[in-house]
């Protein structure tokens, strides 16, 4: 039951490794960025799920003594999402430029072209 009780960690763990694998294994530059996004998303989930208090409600307008989830991780992750979006945007912009310069976004083809320089 301990294993199931921590199911959020299993989800996080699975997403993290999937994303990491995609980043490393795929040669397509866009696919890499998708992998990077999955990787980052897993961390968002990690933060968000850790703020959950069992039976707690949303921390919006509180009656005294009401149980509510910890809002801080959520706020942090808002920031992290912004950072993630910026990274993705920059990454995609670079991919566009690479496509313009090399005519391809496959890693091995790019290497082949630069070696001939």
């Amino acid at each position: 039951m301990v294993l199931l009780g921590q199911f959020n960690y299993w989800v996080v763990f699975f997403l993290m490794m999937t994303g990491f694998y995609v980043v490393i294994a795929r040669g397509n530059l866009v696919a890499k960025i998708v992998g990077l996004n999955i990787f980052q998303t897993s961390v968002f989930l990690l933060y968000i799920s850790m703020g959950k208090v069992a039976g707690g409600t949303a921390p919006i307008v509180l009656a005294d003594g009401a149980l509510y989830s910890n809002p801080l991780p959520h706020v942090l992750i808002l920031t992290a999402i912004v950072v993630g979006v910026a990274t993705t945007a920059l990454g995609l912009a670079l991919v566009v430029r690479i496509k313009e310069a090399y005519g391809t976004i496959e890693e091995d083809e790019i290497h082949a072209k630069d070696d001939s320089l």
């Binding site: 980043v23 890499k32 990077l36 990274t87 670079l94 430029r97």
Partner: peptide, 9 residues
């Protein structure tokens, strides 16, 4: 460009 991309990842 590729250097920046590599560094970004």
């Amino acid at each position: 460009l590729t250097a920046a991309y590599q560094y970004l990842i």
